[in-house]
Design a protein around this nucleic acid. Structure first.
Lengths: 210, 210
DNA sequence: TCATGTGAAACGCTTCACAGCT
DNA sequence: AGCTGTGAAGCGTTTCACATGA
């Protein structure tokens, strides 16, 4: 079993989405060249990415769309439901709660937490907002797999600690702060402010170059 | 002028945030070692990142916090205001509109667009929601620098095209889709579904390894 | 002939290690 | 002595190019 880079995984996500499109277009076979073109990658990269997990193609023909799609589904582990706990019931949390792309991929938010007393007890759809103190109990009761952090930066690390303590093994962090978690806990960050700063840098530089 | 990697830029964002903390703690000097520790990086990496832009440190002492902070501010181009146009006034757009981290960094959303007739004409704070057809006119009127795409995947590329056509040089894309833009236009993606799939992969793999 | 799968080369980022300055 | 700045080594990813098989 070799090491697979996180970029490969991101590209697999992309290939997977494109394969769905090809499937609904009725395409049977797809070449690495065409897949790469639509994915913004190179043919060699597509083949290399896939080769990490086995040999799925037919020489001279390409990849059978339906098979490849279901192989990637299985590799990514999205051939099952995942239960998600959301901490932070502000506007961002609300947007995440109703983000259709999540449910479409079988990620189900089964619990919502917020320390704001005016929010506790309210319902979002059929989920009641609870105090974060209940995290550990709720996580084991609902067998939560993934924790989503949508709280202000200054409390993000303590929320992450509580999630780890509750046995959560995967965290998606929206706070603008680097989080530290033990080995064995998967952590991904979505940092919108950082992306804006990257754009700001690019624009400042372009201006300077002209 | 050398090439600077996008990871260096992301780390500069992180250093910048940490330096603000050190400043408010009253620290005068900071070593690459301590900065790296808080940033989750290595001392050599901190020094290498900074060396792309000049020499800011004092041998034997470290970096003068206030100076380094303002240097990074200037490098990232966040020492000025940026005007942002948001396309997509759904829940995600709404969350972005009121995301405090943006305004704190001087990113100001000065225009909001949505093609939903029931939304057009409504106001968010003092910004009126307009039809995307008005994009080009509004961008040049308000001198918009950055476009944010918060629409469903299937219309994201056409929105990006319209932004490019309107002269926007930097785009932040929240749609779950790879966008293609011409050279000279900076593009950053925030792909929440993709991050969840990366977590799903990590969890599936962990389980398989045991 | 056509497209995959893969050693090997190329490339870019990170880490090492130390000269040089305070 | 302590810490920066940086050439050089190390390492992981991408790209090349071709043997292999349909």
């Amino acid at each position: 079993l070799q090491k697979v880079s996180e970029w490969t995984i991101h590209r697999l996500s992309t290939y997977h989405r494109l394969l769905s499109e090809f499937e609904s277009e009725g395409r049977e076979y797809i070449s690495s060249h065409e897949l790469a073109h639509r994915a913004g990658a190179t043919p060699a990269q597509v083949r290399r990415d896939l080769s990490c997990f086995g040999t799925f193609g037919t020489k001279g023909r390409g990849y059978f769309v339906a098979d490849l799609s279901s192989m990637i589904t299985s590799i990514l582990g999205i051939d099952r439901d995942w239960r998600v706990a959301l901490v932070g019931a502000g506007r961002l949390g609300s947007a995440l709660f109703s983000y259709k792309e999540f449910r479409r991929r079988n990620f189900h938010i089964v619990a919502v937490f917020d320390s704001d007393k005016s929010k506790i007890g309210k319902h979002w759809a059929d989920v009641e907002i609870e105090h974060p103190d209940a995290l550990k109990a709720v996580v084991s009761k609902h067998q939560v797999d993934i924790g989503v952090i949508a709280v202000p930066s200054d409390t993000a690390q303590s929320v992450a600690n509580a999630m780890v303590d509750a046995g959560i093994k995967a965290i998606l962090n929206f706070a603008h702060r680097k989080l530290f978690v033990p080995d064995g806990v998967a952590l991904r960050n979505v940092n919108m402010a950082m992306e804006l700063e990257a754009l700001s840098y690019a624009m400042s530089r372009n201006r300077r170059l002209r």
